[in-house]
Simulated assay, not measured.
Amino acid sequence: MTVRWGILGAAKFALDHMGPAIHAARGAELAALATSSPEKTAAFRAFCPGLTLHDSYDALLADPTIDAVYIPLPNHLHLDWSLKAIAAGKHVLTEKPMAMQAAAFDQLIAARDASGLLVAEAYMIVHHPQWLKTRALIAAGAIGQVDHVDTAFSYDNRAEPGNIRNRPETGGGGIRDIGVYTYGSVRFATGAEPVALQARLRRENGVDTWAQVTGEMDGPTGRFTYSAMTSMRLFPRQEVVFQGETGLIRLTAPFNAGLFGEARVELHRTGAQAEIFRFPAVNQYVLQVEAFGRSLRDGTPYGCPLEFSRGTQAMIDTVFAVATDL
């Protein structure tokens, strides 16, 4: 079974990453694009000449030849168009955050269950072997009990005031854009959930541009302290460190593997030489599309179910609820 995909909107991210990933993935075909901006279609057709073009999202959803849709629209449109796609009988992969509040995920879960369709948030890192290796090392006790986790993700887009991430009306802000990684990745790797959080934010034009979150999380690895920094106004940085009783695990390029730098997992343990696991040629977007297809073909559990995404959104909701503005 080849999954025929359509994309709602000619977003730059879809052009640069997910469109080529769908086109390259085994068992997938990029078949259609919906956009009201004809000038944007040439770049997609440059790598996918046979692409069918629709001038509206509704027209693509009505296309009976399309099995699944990828939705890279601005954040505030994710929920509504995901629900419309489900109602049209399409499998759905939507960019994060798929909904703006955790409670809204309940609508998606109910619609998924009623339809029998595969509906998921495009949280690509859970498919990358860097994160699968990290989770396996932690579960195996490679660093003993986890005692502390540091996460950081920053970039600088202050020169782009019109960017949807800098606009409150489109659901912008650093936490919704990249906090989903600094929070959700730790949940994925450890199975832990936050039990106490504090947060400090800086805002511009109604969106958070810097956030520092601290607190405690608890789960199968035990209770540990946690720190996460996100910013849209700092020099680019990506790093995650899991510190345990007998060692630590450091991830380089943990979120934009291959784009920010080489994806590595460094295992440092007391009395032992550091072990470095390298993943230089892995495209996590392709892996995400292929995992989606496998789930449709043979029922393989998808790596990022809606229930997991709901948990990360609940953590985001808590951060906003407890935050103090600087």
Rank of each mutant, 00 (worst) to 15 (best):
R4L: 09
G6C: 06
L8C: 10
L8Q: 05
A11P: 02
H17G: 05
H17S: 13
H17N: 13
P20G: 07
A21P: 06
A28W: 12
E29N: 08
E29G: 07
L30A: 11
A31F: 07
A32W: 03
A32N: 04
A32G: 00
L33N: 12
L33S: 09
A34Y: 03
T35C: 06
S37L: 10
S37F: 08
E39S: 14
E39C: 01
A42D: 15
A43E: 15
C48V: 09
P49S: 13
L53I: 15
D55A: 15
Y57M: 06
T65A: 15
T65Q: 14
D67L: 07
A68E: 03
I71L: 15
H78W: 01
K84T: 04
G89F: 10
K90A: 08
K90M: 07
T94I: 06
E95K: 05
M100C: 03
M100G: 13
Q101H: 14
A102Q: 11
A103F: 04
D106L: 03
I109E: 10
D113V: 03
V119E: 13
E121K: 02
A122E: 09
M124P: 00
I125D: 07
P129E: 06
P129G: 12
Q130T: 04
W131T: 08
L132K: 15
R135C: 06
A142G: 07
I143E: 11
I143A: 12
H148I: 07
H148C: 09
T151A: 15
Y155R: 14
N163K: 09
I164H: 12
R167N: 14
E169Q: 14
E169P: 08
T170Y: 13
G171R: 08
T182W: 12
T182M: 09
T182E: 14
S185E: 13
V186C: 11
E193I: 13
A196M: 08
Q198M: 05
L201M: 13
R203Q: 15
E204C: 02
E204Q: 15
E204L: 03
N205C: 00
G206T: 08
V207M: 13
T209G: 02
A211S: 15
Q212W: 11
V213D: 07
E216W: 06
S227K: 11
T230P: 02
G244C: 13
G247M: 05
I249E: 02
I249F: 07
F255C: 05
F260C: 01
G261W: 05
G261P: 04
A263N: 00
T270W: 01
A272K: 15
Q273M: 08
A274G: 00
I276Y: 03
N283Y: 06
N283F: 02
Q288C: 14
V289Q: 02
R294S: 14
L296T: 04
G299V: 08
P305V: 04
L306T: 06
E307C: 06
E307Q: 09
S309P: 01
S309I: 00
Q313W: 00
A314H: 04
A314V: 00
M315N: 08
I316E: 12
I316W: 01
V319Y: 04
V322P: 05
L326A: 15
